[in-house]
Design a protein around this nucleic acid. Structure first.
Length: 273
DNA sequence: TCTATTTCCTGTCGGC
DNA sequence: TGCCGACAGGAAATAG
């Protein structure tokens, strides 16, 4: 499940593989992947566009083209692969971008949850997917003042706030559990119950863990791999996610798995309060 | 305005 | 061995 570190790794690979290439014919094999505009216009507008570069905002990939921007969200299992034209398609190949070098950029997605939008460069600035995103989880952008202000008066669980992309962009279910364990905060704590001191610790955990995960090339659980098909290595650094049945290495209590905000959630009943 | 719930999807796994 | 239900979950849409 790609979260920010995985999307960043995908972006890194794609920049090398498809920058400066020009898109020709576009084939869509599962319509629901394309959110906007209508399929025919999506295909028509992409034809002849050159990929200038690829950026990232939160978990969104932004293909910067000559006149448009392709906004792509991988959701659960979306992935891009570069294949030589004529390579047999797999059953999970849903969108195919022919390139002018005889290759095809293919979008694969077992669960079909991923979404793509094609918007003009001007529209990008006001696109609803991006305007509601919080700051990137880095030292220079995620301020304590913003977090304190945002969390004040929020009754929801702190984990729900970490997941909803408005407080901070790019955190998903795996890193939310890792961050809250690192910060010693229970996932189901009401956000408004956090002290300024706890929010400060939370911020440090967010910034450090996301940085470490980006440097490790993301986490590979089940199927994630970047554009080269390479896996990340942060799964070796996970301390709590998926460790149900294990004991906390700090206090030796068994980890507990529960549900918070409809998501599988792991925590240590002693170290997190 | 805020929050919780539902929806979209298919592969995997445990239980019988 | 085969079937069936539960589960995995990001973000948008919907409901309250």
């Amino acid at each position: 499940m790609p979260e920010l570190p995985e999307v960043e790794s995908v972006r890194n690979g794609l920049v090398d593989l498809v920058s400066e290439r020009t898109i020709g014919k576009v084939t869509v094999r599962w319509d629901n992947i394309i959110k906007e505009p209508k399929i025919e216009l999506f295909q028509k507008n992409l034809e002849g566009q050159t990929i200038e570069t690829i950026r990232r905002r939160g978990k969104f990939l932004l293909f910067i083209l000559t006149d448009y921007v392709l906004i792509s969200h991988l959701r659960m299992e979306g992935k891009f692969r570069l294949e030589v034209e004529g390579t047999p398609l797999t059953k999970h190949t849903h969108v195919i971008f022919s390139l002018n070098d005889g290759q095809e950029l293919r979008y694969l997605d077992v669960r079909k949850f991923g979404k793509m939008s094609l918007v003009s460069k001007k529209e990008l600035l006001t696109h609803p997917s991006l305007t509601s995103l919080g700051p990137e989880p880095v030292e220079e952008e995620l301020s304590i003042d913003w977090m304190v202000e945002y969390l004040k008066g929020k009754k929801r669980a702190v984990k729900a706030c970490l997941l909803d992309q408005k407080l901070v962009a790019g955190v998903g279910n795996i890193y939310a559990d890792e961050i809250l364990y690192d910060a010693g905060i229970r996932p189901n704590r009401s956000a408004s119950s956090l002290t300024d001191e706890e929010i400060s610790v939370l911020r440090s955990s967010i910034v450090r863990i996301m940085k470490e995960a980006v440097e490790a090339g993301g986490t590979t659980i089940r199927t994630y791999a970047n554009a080269y098909g390479r896996e990340g290595s942060y799964q070796n650094s996970l301390r709590i996610y998926g460790k149900v049945g294990s004991d906390c290495p700090i206090c030796h209590s068994p980890f507990i798995k529960t549900k918070v905000a409809q998501r599988g959630t792991h925590f240590c009943p002693v170290c997190q309060s």
